[in-house]
């Protein structure tokens, strides 16, 4: 499996009134084509920052991000991103929210609509096209976020704590549906980087887990998850792995 994303010695420094603060220190990481990579770590350790650097939303202070072998400069439009806060525009309907990125790519109205409908359908949102975000429950909102990210048919899906703002039942439902979606061969995206602070979520979803430590943010360990799918959340192997990752964080 070749690496699709390579991070080489990534450092991020933010200026602060009381001096500079280093958020990420010398992070090197490869994301393999077709894998699900989970990034876990304590809150504030720089997980979101790392994800945004991968996407090119913010530049690293030092180091290089390579995508498919090429050094990247600016936003990488081969990535789609899902946000913890959903980040939907409240004045656009579900369909319009999903179409935003398609319009930006200059597709004509008919194609935009068709493509948006396809992904709205895939995430189970059909019937909600005309709804505004504020009419939807949290779970439905995040489905819109997911459909929007998928609609641009990215190579890599980046997810920043996508289920953290949801209640336990909703997040389980969405997680299962994400796994189903990922198993769908018709879906162009097969590489996922998911940031989470729930270890069980990481163990359930990921092929590999990267554990970050804080102050400054750095990689402590990278763990392969060899459990067979579908994964049994109640199995002893599952619990053992959860415990192991947990011990690395604290």
């Amino acid at each position: 499996m070749p690496a699709i994303i390579e991070l080489e010695h990534i450092t991020k420094i933010y200026p602060r009134p009381e001096g500079e603060s280093q958020i990420l220190a010398d992070v090197s990481l490869e994301v393999m084509d077709g894998e699900v990579l989970a990034v876990v770590g304590p809150s504030g350790c720089g997980k979101s920052t790392l994800l945004r650097i991968i996407h090119g939303l913010i530049p690293p202070s030092a180091g290089v991000v390579r995508f498919a072998g090429r050094a990247q400069d600016g936003i990488n439009l081969s990535c789609g991103m899902v946000f913890q806060s959903f980040a939907l525009l409240p004045w656009l309907t579900v369909e319009q929210n999903v179409m935003v990125g398609l319009e930006a790519r200059g597709l004509d109205d008919e194609t935009c609509r068709k493509r948006a409908m396809k992904y709205i359908d895939k995430v189970g949102l059909d019937g909600n096209e005309e709804a505004y975000p504020r009419e939807l429950s949290g779970g439905m909102k995040q489905r819109v976020g997911l459909a929007r990210a998928l609609a641009v048919e990215p190579k890599v899906l980046l997810m920043d704590e996508p289920f953290s703002a949801l209640d336990a039942l909703t997040s389980i439902n969405l997680r299962e549906e994400l796994i189903d979606l990922w198993g769908d061969p018709a879906l162009p995206v097969d590489t996922i980087v998911i940031v989470t602070h729930l270890i069980e979520e990481a163990v359930e979803l990921a092929d590999r887990i990267v554990v970050l430590a804080s102050n400054p943010g750095r990689i402590v360990e990278s763990i392969k998850v060899e459990l067979p799918r579908p994964r049994e959340r109640k199995s002893p192997e599952f619990s053992a792995l959860v415990d192991r990752v947990f011990s690395l964080i604290v």
Partner: peptide, 17 residues
């Protein structure tokens, strides 16, 4: 209540045999 929650509940129950 919402449908996502209902489906999540089924999922949890399935985990518990």
């Amino acid at each position: 209540t919402g449908i996502s929650k209902v489906l999540g509940l089924c999922e949890i129950l399935d985990d518990h045999q």
